[in-house]
Computed example of a mutant assay.
Amino acid sequence: MSDKKTGKNAFLMYKGKPLVRNGKTIYYGSMADKYVVMLQVLSTKPYQDMEIADKVLVQLMYTDPEIRARDRIVKKSEKEGLYNALDIGSIWLERALRDQ
């Protein structure tokens, strides 16, 4: 997705990689790379006048569509809060892409 006026990428970026949200699922990383991180918000809690992520499932996954969905998961963990989940996910992704 690119902005028609500037021609720049319109995705929200975190540490140089795109963040794409679909409902309660957030994908971190590029699908063109070997790995991507999937963050699933399992539960939310009220904070002031909004809902924030409480429990988040973090999964480091292969992007290869030829691999069965169950076999794509390399690592997974459950974290409290979106920041903690994104923090560990970014570390896993950085290491996986560096070591490939």
Rank of each mutant, 00 (worst) to 15 (best):
M1Q: 11
S2N: 06
S2M: 07
K4W: 06
K5Q: 10
T6K: 05
T6Q: 03
K8F: 03
K8V: 00
K8M: 05
K8G: 01
A10S: 15
F11C: 09
F11T: 06
K15P: 00
K17R: 15
K17E: 08
K17H: 09
P18W: 10
L19I: 15
L19M: 15
L19E: 14
L19A: 11
V20W: 01
N22D: 15
G23Q: 13
G23P: 14
K24L: 12
K24I: 02
T25R: 15
I26E: 13
I26C: 14
Y27L: 10
Y28R: 02
Y28P: 11
Y28L: 14
Y28W: 09
G29A: 04
S30V: 01
M31R: 15
M31F: 13
A32D: 14
A32V: 06
A32G: 06
D33E: 15
K34I: 00
K34Q: 11
V36E: 10
V37N: 10
V37A: 12
V37Q: 12
M38Y: 03
M38F: 02
L39F: 14
L39P: 13
L39Q: 11
Q40K: 13
Q40N: 14
L42P: 14
L42R: 06
L42A: 02
T44F: 00
T44Q: 13
P46G: 03
Y47W: 09
D49R: 09
D49A: 06
M50L: 07
E51W: 05
I52Q: 12
A53F: 07
A53L: 06
A53P: 03
A53K: 14
A53E: 13
D54V: 00
D54G: 01
K55E: 15
V56Q: 11
V56R: 10
V58D: 08
Q59D: 09
Q59I: 01
L60E: 10
L60G: 11
M61Q: 13
M61Y: 01
M61S: 06
Y62K: 11
T63A: 09
P65K: 03
P65I: 05
P65S: 05
E66C: 00
E66R: 10
E66G: 00
I67Y: 05
A69I: 13
R70L: 10
I73V: 15
I73A: 05
I73C: 12
V74R: 07
V74N: 00
V74W: 00
K76T: 04
E78R: 12
K79T: 01
K79F: 00
L82Y: 07
L82T: 01
L82P: 09
L82N: 02
Y83A: 11
Y83W: 04
N84H: 08
N84Y: 04
N84D: 13
N84T: 05
A85F: 06
L86A: 11
L86I: 09
L86D: 08
G89P: 13
G89V: 02
G89M: 03
G89C: 03
S90Q: 02
S90H: 02
S90D: 08
S90E: 07
S90P: 00
I91L: 04
W92Y: 02
L93V: 02
L93Q: 01
L93T: 01
E94M: 04
R95K: 07
A96M: 03
A96L: 03
L97A: 02
L97V: 00
R98G: 07
D99L: 07
Q100D: 08
